[in-house]
Design a protein around this nucleic acid. Structure first.
Lengths: 344, 344
DNA sequence: ATGAAAGCGCTAACAC
DNA sequence: GTGTTAGCGCTTTCAT
């Protein structure tokens, strides 16, 4: 790669580098005659000039790069859409994103921050791959924005899914279909999932508004994977008829997948005998189940965009209150009215 | 952020910036007295000096950043492990990865290349989210490395999964269990998947080595999603007993998921009545099926590492022949010997 | 309407 | 053993 500098363009156009800089950046362009501008552009084209952003950054003190520190891009398939959202905004704004995966290792986080600060990125986003409360690493700049997590200490711009509203919309879907015995297949408490508590609140809220007395026996917990969902659903489905649920709201799509299996094993058909709503809208899963799963989508793409917009100053954020991103329901085919004998 | 420069450290330590530079970079360190070194380090610490990589890059002509251009991080959950592999190597080498998602748009690719070249990244990786033959974008540097794709025109360092060997290992697993009527649930030709042809070759190879005459009726095609797998499996399972397969090798895990459903609907149990092997080892899916799916893993992490190693010059690559990364089989619980009446 | 020149913060050849 | 100095390639103020 032959290196051609601004001086080469200047020489060829018979002007100074200052003029070339102004023309090419469209700065003070009124002050430079159209003819000169034309000449400069032609010269740049002719010599194949490509600006050197490193030099530019050194001079201007901004790099047009934003650092994105994430735990575990590796181990969840959710990362993609978050990165995509952040990346799209960055591109629209002529910025680049520098990605660092720290796998939640404190040393790696420190190293990442150093590297990013060293490269003088214009902003930093600190992302988690699932909704959490985090102790932010020491040295994370004040104006870093948190993506899919909130700071334990507070005081940070942050965006997380509106899990409570998601729980509400999920359970309302079931109530609207006529269900009254609605189970919540929750994650076990040991996983300490903030989403768990919030979605449960949403569940309770809808029962209350529908005048349904919550049945503690319908709030069951298991490991938030298919096996857990299966086992929990199994327990529920072997209950005596009058205590058995006609619908299940599952903590995530994997548990819903397990609920499908349990139903099948009990000779029940979804949604005819049992309605199911999941959470996550997991790629390549929710839509592929049989029947396709009605679920609540985690707004990863939108959160990614939001975080980048705040990072780039395109949008204001209140550091005191995390932004709650709506979780839209995705209607597919796993909900129908309850079997006749259970309707009101 | 107060900016403290090398000159500040030099002043405080009572030495020149050259000395500071040498000490802090460990260059020519023999030539500088231990006392001075000590003094410099203390001064750096005291004033909170953080090197400015931008200035360093300008001077040294290397940025310790590598660009990773990818189509669609957004739409597949496979991206993560590839990024993780690349990222890990980069970190080990003190490099940062600059990620650009172009969504396979030519204009975006051009823009990305410009931006990356402008930032003077030390290397470029061009990644696809599934195995393809691509027309590389004009302007992609000669020494860019291709990840999960090969260049139509050839002549590029590239790494892709060894799909043929993957097909072999999958089908051997079935043959070893005693199966002789093994179906291949393939993707339809219109999807134009290079993996499809290759895995089929592996399938045929194993049949040949086992002395099994391939039955064209057992090579069926469908859309490579759960619905397609289900439908294809359905067709196969309604065949007369003597022509029915006892095992299915599925193009991907989603098709295998569909095959499970079909089996269930026919009152067949996996693996007792039907053995199934998938492909991809899709995260949060293969292991969650019931029974957990035996499948062939796509070596995304390893390919990501390989590409980064080549990009950073840690490893040589022959640009004439793409590197084939092994696809290991992941044994779970979907394979067993065929039902007694079908054994030899 | 354009040019000269001073840096941005660092490294490395050369001097002493 | 350590300092001087000349850039890396660009932007921007100040002169003309």
């Amino acid at each position: 790669m032959v290196r051609v500098r601004m001086a080469d363009v200047a020489a060829r156009a018979g002007v100074s580098t200052a003029t070339v800089s102004m023309v090419l950046n469209g700065v003070n362009s009124t002050r430079i005659s159209p003819q000169t501008q034309q000449r400069v552009r032609e010269a740049a084209e002719a010599v194949g000039y490509k600006p050197n952003s490193v030099a530019r950054s050194l001079r201007t003190q901004q790099t047009r790069m934003v650092g994105l520190i994430s735990d575990t891009i590796a181990t969840t398939p959710f990362a993609g859409r978050m990165l995509a959202g952040a990346n799209d905004v960055a591109r629209e704004q002529g910025h680049l994103v520098v990605l660092v995966d720290t796998e939640r290792d404190a040393a790696a986080e420190r190293q990442a921050l150093n590297a990013l600060n060293g490269q003088r990125v214009d902003a930093i986003i600190y992302a988690c791959m699932w909704h959490r409360v985090v102790e932010v690493p020491e040295g994370l700049p004040e104006d870093a924005v948190l993506l899919d997590c909130v700071a334990a200490a507070g005081g940070r711009a942050a965006v997380v899914p509106d899990e409570r509203a998601g729980g509400v919309v999920a359970v309302r879907e079931l109530v609207a279909a006529g269900h009254r015995r609605i189970a919540f297949l929750d994650a076990e408490e040991r996983f300490d999932l903030v989403a768990s508590r919030l979605r449960f609140e949403g569940y309770l809220e809808v029962l209350a508004e529908a005048g349904i007395e919550p049945d503690p026996g319908l709030h069951v917990r298991a490991e938030p994977v298919a096996g857990g969902g299966r086992e929990a659903a199994q327990r529920l489905l072997t209950l005596p008829a009058e205590r058995r649920p006609t619908a299940m709201f599952c903590f995530n799509d994997r548990m819903a997948m397990g609920a499908y299996t349990a139903a099948l094993h009990c000779g029940l058909s979804v949604p005819r005998d049992l309605s199911v709503v999941g959470y996550d809208d997991q790629q390549l899963v929710a839509a592929e189940l049989d029947p396709p799963l009605t679920t609540v989508a985690l707004p990863h793409y939108e959160m990614g965009r939001w975080a980048m917009e705040v990072a780039l100053g395109l949008r204001q954020a209140d550091p005191e209150v995390p932004h709650l991103m709506p979780c839209p329901i995705v209607r597919r085919a796993s909900v129908s009215p309850p079997p006749a004998q259970f309707s009101d």
